[in-house]
Amino acid sequence: MLLKLIRHEFKSTARVFLPLFAAAIVLAGVNALLLPIADNMGNSTASTVFDMGVSLIVGLLAVLFFVLVSALPIVVLVVVVIRFYRALGDEGYLWFSLPATASQHLLARTLSALTWCVAAIVVVAASLLLCFSSYGAFGVVSGFLAAAASYGFPIVPVAVMLLILIASATLMSILTFYASIAVAPHISQSRFGGSLVAYLIAQVASSAALTAFLSVASVPGQVMFGSTFYDLQYNYPAFSDYVDKVDSLGIGYEAWLDALLRTDYASSAISLISNISLVLLCAAAVGCLLISVVWYLVSRHFLGRQLNLS
């Protein structure tokens, strides 16, 4: 039953999202071709009406593309939330009379929503890369990654943790909305008003819980920072001198970092930064997942044992 629900959910949402994603990719491709042409025309001294017309069209296409890619993840989230809201309205008379449990309904919708939200982020990243490919975007990214790797920065683990964090945070957002909508009939006659009030309360609760969790969970990172810094200061006295020197010069953080990377202490510093990054990313992801579980259980309770379709 769960697989059937998932299939139906993906089928009906694909009709909305696939054309949007395709539009983003196509516009990126068109912009990748046209932007360099417009640039060349801009460099030319002889400007004709035709050139201005072409520039105008290219400009409009570029604006359209950037509006689409900036709005895409939000649009996808809004659509999945509206779908869930409607599933507890008139459409609920169909869905909740099917022989499926509240958990199966919730899992199917959550899985589909999460997949589309993450896909939207991937599509945005891919279309931006494609759009700027003629300006060497792939080269810049791969160069950055190669440089970071050459300093011993653990790119793959950090990238994986970052993706897990993005997915967990998205999941938390989706389930916060779902729980608010599921609770709404129990707190107000107006389903929309109830959902809004419940969401505001749930959002504040989520933020407070995440902050509290991170303040505790980041302790290992702080300890790690303290011990590594202690190690650098006392086992590598030159490091301490160096830090004092750059501090007294009052140079900016970026210059400090750049100078540091040129020293013998680079590997120790990179190791410190990457380990702390991993610990913090991991802590944030776990926090988001724990809060997601709470909202999932709340939603399941109100869709199952307390279901009241108005």
């Binding site: 409607r86 008139d90 459409e91 008379y93 169909l94 009379s97 099917l98 022989p99 499926a100 449990t101």
Partner: peptide, 18 residues
């Protein structure tokens, strides 16, 4: 529950399809 929903064919008093 789930088992009884297999046995019940329900026509709601409203349009329920998307």
């Amino acid at each position: 529950g789930t088992q009884t929903k297999r046995l019940v064919s329900y026509l709601p008093d409203r349009t329920c399809f998307d």
